[in-house]
Design a protein around this nucleic acid. Structure first.
Length: 943
RNA sequence: GGGCGAUUAGCUCAGCCGGUUAGAGCGCUUGCUUUACACGCAAGAGGCCAGUGGUUCGAGUCCACUAUCGCCCACCA
């Protein structure tokens, strides 16, 4: 089939080609690397998106950046692996399914409509989640394919797959063995809505306007009172002491005495503790160990009991006496009223402070004392700081290293247990036979106890087996020694009993994420993948999960494998709307990447996301930018269309791959192409993808399209020799390969068409995906050709300029005389080019004694290498022309003055590099030449 | 309280190891149905590179301070 102009559409239609091309890539198996022990692989593990998630622009940006790197390295011949995956996203997914259950959206049968997970039971609930995952679990994979992501789908990994799950259990067991995982009672962040513990990172703090309440605590023998300041009066129901600073003269004498707790009447000891700030509030601190981390520590130091005043559902507990059952917010109002009525509310003052909210659902978190699993971080953090300090892991942009280290230095233990069902269940078992404490398992109120109180197993009168059958959630107040094992033990190693009960909690989602770079490659097995591909090369993700994920991967990677998980961390920015606002569904300013692809094409979206923006900076996206990118893609398409059309008419393009470089146009464009290739290499090495693209964009559009192709048209039309066709093909083909990592689809489509037009006679790879990336050939650099082209382009621009300035109709050919073209002898050879591009009568080259046109009706332009004289029919406004020339003159003089000053400075010539000095000298000389010429023109104008 | 970033054309942003007269896209002005492209072509206007001081032969670029904006971390109740 011969490609004709008709066969190639005028405007590029991405929708018509993209999915077909992606399918062909999968078909070709190009994304699965061949393991070659002699080569160093390039490896990126994809940050696993939430399994039920949908692609947003943040994903699109990250996938595009990764894909650019991956395609570049693949084309450079490195075994390249980009491993995709998905995250079970514990809390997010569970909440989603719970919500849908409530709405009866996914229930298989009507009898499950409106049920809570507790009513459904653990097993059946998890079935529902798996249903959900099966239904929506591959949406985002398909969306990544739309983006052109060249990942190895044969290696796709899910955090709950057998491999990663084994890695989780192994890690847990290892860390437990080493004493780096422990169970302890601590103040944790509790989300009453999600009813689970959260890590510190999952809590978002927001400044809120509130009050600081001063509350009167009467002294035991009625001799006055002690005023404490608090933002949370409702927690006084959990107070077990009052603390003052031992160095505080106001209160020192009270240490050891007692106060009455208002409304309740309990006697609380007054203790002295350094943690109390003398300057804050009244200098007296109510100690609530059950609901505040600082108080918890104070309480521990002074042996104060922990009282839980607020239940897991956010309602006041039995300890709250008359306030039992009230919601904590309601209780605050009521207790304030009561305190006021009793004359115990001294005063309240407006106060701004930050309040923690659940990162997932936004509800105010309740700090409360609870027994949870923790990872001890100090020992893990030390080597993780070291590898960044010594540069084994480099973070791009570099300033994030300090952010990383700063966080690591102040790291706190990580609460990893979650009271959820969806996730990796903690591999710890408790023996109900040898543990006396087993009967103290308690239920949270939502487990079907209508009065909202706690009940122990014994009180409930429930047998263990009965519990399991009902698959009820059992809250972990277990005090028994856990048996930590990779697989469920058959019987208790201590007593041989078989009534073993697995810890009901699951692990923080980020625990499995932390293992991702090695767990996806087969660790802990001795797998070929982990041996060959680990450590991975680049971890590319958003800066917002530096702590959540990156830091933890470094720690766990080092701990588990003894090696770093990746050599580079590339942190991308966040995507914002055109006004700089964060995109969110509630704001309604979300751009759906798939919609953007449908409207503008994948290549345009990718180009938009990765240009005009420095690494790590946030990026604003708008329709205007998308349209501009689409225009570029279309430009590429049409340049190719021109070349291909001509090619198909000629039927062949001999020597296009190593073309004869005889003509100056050809030497110029090929030299420039290779300079661009060299620049692109440098930028890519430094992760400067935007700069790399700008380089190739500018070359392709401003040099190849605007000049080379335009000139080539003239040569083709004139059938002059040598034909520019081999060069057109050469530059087009190489440009496609240069651009392929950025614009995978349009470049492949053009490349395949080119293959077809060349009838497969040429040595071209099956796909541009696996074609070699163009290596720069420095030998093609041709300074002379560049100078000559500069002159040619300068002359054409100057003439067009005059035409525009003097409003000469475009269809009227100008007369143009050229004098002093000695320096640009090449211009004589380019006369026909100039005549066509600038629309002039045949150029007249003036010799020494030739007559000049009358100055009064001539516009003169002094260029380096030639002077143009353009006589105009109508009289030129001599005054205006003189002004113009004088302005030009002034410019020359100013610049020359600056230059000679610089060159006259002995220190400059002595200290500046040779080439810089030389360049300045040349500039000065050229300016002098031009000034003389302008002077001459001015003289003529006056005469 | 600690840490990090930003400030460049009307708008959105680039500007790499300090070295021409600071660039791009969009927008704006003027003119073009030039057989690759109007998603285009040609020509143009538009900048005290936030401010002050310093280092340097040379600063948009490096340093210090100031101002404004933004982000992250933090147990002052």
């Amino acid at each position: 089939m011969t490609q004709t102009e008709n066969a190639i559409p005028k405007a590029y239609d991405p929708g018509a080609v993209e999915q077909r091309l992606y399918a062909s890539w999968i078909e070709g198996g190009y994304f699965t690397p061949a393991i070659d022990p002699d080569k160093e692989p390039f490896v990126i593990i994809m940050p696993p998106p939430n399994v039920t998630g949908e692609l947003h622009l943040g994903h699109a940006l990250q996938a595009t950046l990764a894909d650019i790197m991956v395609r570049w390295h693949r084309m450079k011949g490195e075994p390249t692996l980009w491993l995709p995956g998905a995250d079970h996203a514990g809390i997010a997914t569970q909440v989603m399914v719970e919500r849908s259950l409530a709405q009866n959206a996914t229930s298989r049968s009507s009898d499950e409509a409106g049920l809570t997970r507790q009513q459904l039971g653990r097993e059946r609930f998890l079935e529902r989640v798996w249903d959900w995952v099966r239904l929506y679990g591959h949406t985002i994979d398909e969306q990544h394919k739309r983006l052109g992501a060249s990942c190895d789908w044969t290696r796709r990994s899910f955090t709950l797959d057998d491999g990663p799950s084994l890695a989780v259990r192994t890690t847990f067991a290892n860390l437990y063995e080493k004493g780096l995982i422990y169970r302890g009672e601590r103040i944790i962040n509790w989300c009453p809505r999600c009813s689970t513990a959260l890590s510190d990172l999952e809590v978002d703090h927001e400044e809120e306007q509130s009050f600081l309440y001063h509350i009167r605590y009467p002294l035991e023998y009625g001799d006055g009172d002690l005023i404490v300041a608090t933002t949370r009066p409702e927690t006084l129901l959990g107070d077990t002491g009052v603390a003052v600073n031992p160095g505080d003269d106001r209160y020192r004498h009270l240490i050891g005495r007692r106060v009455f707790l208002p409304m309740v009447g309990r006697l609380l000891p007054i203790v002295g503790d350094e943690a109390v700030d003398l300057a804050f509030g009244t200098g007296a601190l109510k100690v609530t160990p059950g609901h505040d981390p600082v108080d918890f520590e104070v309480g521990q130091r002074h042996g104060l009991p922990v009282v839980t005043a607020i239940n897991l559902d956010g309602a006041m507990s039995r300890e709250a006496g008359p306030y039992e059952g009230m919601d904590r917010a309601e209780c605050r109002e009521v207790i304030l009223r009561d305190l006021d009525a009793a004359g115990l509310l001294d005063r309240q003052e407006p106060y701004r402070h930050s309040v923690g909210h659940c990162g997932r659902c936004g509800v105010v978190v309740e700090p409360l004392a609870s027994r949870q699993w923790f990872v001890s971080m100090d020992e893990l953090a030390r080597p993780a700081m070291e590898v960044v300090r010594d540069g084994r892991i480099k973070i791009v942009p570099g300033h994030y290293s300090r952010v990383y280290l700063n966080w690591m230095e102040n790291i706190r233990d990580w609460c990893i247990s979650r009271q959820l069902w969806w996730g990796h269940r903690i591999p710890a078992w408790y023996c109900l036979d040898c543990s006396q404490d087993a009967t103290h398992l308690v239920f949270p109120p939502e487990d079907g106890l209508p009065d909202g109180s706690y009940r122990t197993l014994r009180e409930q009168g429930l047998a263990w087996s009965e519990l399991e059958a009902r698959a009820m959630h059992v809250f972990t107040d277990l005090t028994a020694q856990p048996i930590v094992a990779l697989e469920p033990p058959d019987c208790c190693p201590a007593c041989g009993g078989s009534r073993l009960y697995q810890d009901p909690d699951v692990l923080d989602t980020w625990f499995s994420s932390a293992l991702w770079p090695h767990s996806t490659l087969g660790w802990p097995e001795d797998a070929e993948d982990v041996r060959y591909f680990y450590p991975t090369t680049v971890m590319e993700t958003g800066y917002d999960i530096l702590f959540f994920w990156v830091a933890r991967m470094v720690m766990m990677g080092l701990q588990n494998t003894g090696d770093i998980p990746f050599k580079w961390v590339y942190l991308s920015g966040l995507i914002r709307d055109e006004h700089g606002a964060k995109m969110s569904k509630t704001r309604g300013n979300v751009t759906d990447p798939i919609e953007a692809i449908d409207a503008y094409g994948t290549d345009a979206l990718r180009f938009t996301l990765t240009t005009g923006n420095a690494p790590g900076n946030d990026l604003r996206i708008s329709d205007g930018k998308l349209a501009a990118s689409r225009n570029f893609v279309n430009k590429v398409w049409n340049a190719a269309r021109y070349v291909l059309t001509n090619l198909s008419e000629t039927q062949n393009a001999p020597e296009w791959r190593t073309p004869q470089l005889s003509h100056r146009h050809d030497r110029w464009i090929v030299g420039r192409l290779n300079q661009v290739a060299a620049q692109v290499d440098r930028f890519m090495d430094d992760f400067l993808f935007g700069e790399a693209q700008r380089e190739v964009h500018d070359f392709f559009w401003n040099e190849f399209c605007d000049w080379y192709i335009e000139i080539a048209k003239l040569r083709l039309r004139a059938s002059s020799e040598p034909s520019p066709l081999p060069i057109l093909v050469h530059v087009l083909e190489k440009s496609m390969r240069l651009m392929h990592p950025f614009l995978p689809f349009v470049t492949e489509e053009i490349w395949q068409t080119l293959k077809t037009v060349l009838h497969g006679t040429q040595d071209m790879a099956d796909s541009i995906v696996v074609a070699p990336y163009p290596a720069p050939e420095p030998s093609t650099a041709d300074a002379q050709a560049e100078r000559e082209m500069e002159l040619l382009m300068g002359v054409v621009r100057a003439i067009r300029n005059v035409r525009a300035e003097f409003k000469i109709p475009p269809n009227r050919a100008l007369t143009c005389l050229i004098e002093r073209s000695e320096a640009g002898a090449s211009l004589r050879e380019e006369a026909a080019t100039v005549e066509s591009l600038a629309r002039t009568e045949p150029l007249v080259f003036l010799a020494e004694g030739d007559a000049r046109p009358a100055a009064a009706s001539t516009v003169s332009v002094a260029l380096v290498g030639a002077t143009l004289l353009i006589p105009l029919e109508s009289l030129v406004d001599t005054a205006a022309e003189r002004t113009r020339l004088e302005r030009e003159m002034q410019e020359c003089v100013d610049n020359m003055q600056r230059l000679s000053q610089r060159l006259g400075n002995a220190e400059f010539t002595a200290k500046a590099p040779e080439d810089v000095v030389e360049r300045e000298r040349e500039r000065l000389a050229r300016l002098g030449e031009r000034r003389d010429r302008v002077q001459e023109l001015l003289t003529q104008l006056t005469a």
